[in-house]
């Protein structure tokens, strides 16, 4: 099972990234656990200063941007 974490304190872009990640996970069809991380100390622990960010199995994949569902699908594959 892959763990997908969306880092963001709740800005509109973060919500959008969460939505697209869920859509991508559904489309990819694998076994995914999607978690939203809004606690700032946890966000900062990933070394991230721009939100939103997408983390796949502990590895930061995107920072400060909202990629398309297709792009996210590649990142979580």
């Amino acid at each position: 099972m892959k763990k997908l974490q969306i880092l963001g304190p709740g800005c509109p872009k973060c919500t959008e990234l969460a939505k697209r990640t869920e859509a991508a996970a559904k489309a990819a069809g694998g076994d995914f656990e999607v978690e939203k991380v809004s606690d700032l100390s946890k966000i900062m622990a990933f070394g991230v200063m721009m939100t939103p960010a997408l983390v796949v199995d502990g590895e930061v994949k995107v920072v400060g941007q909202v990629p398309s569902v297709e792009e996210i699908k590649k990142m979580i594959a």
């Binding site: 973060c14 700032l40 900062m44 200063m49 721009m50 400060g64």
Partner: peptide, 17 residues
């Protein structure tokens, strides 16, 4: 530097840290 007011807080913390 790219900046968005929604990232002001993590950025501030990062700088202070």
């Amino acid at each position: 530097t790219p900046f968005c007011s929604c990232s002001a807080v993590p950025l501030f913390i990062g700088f202070v840290e």
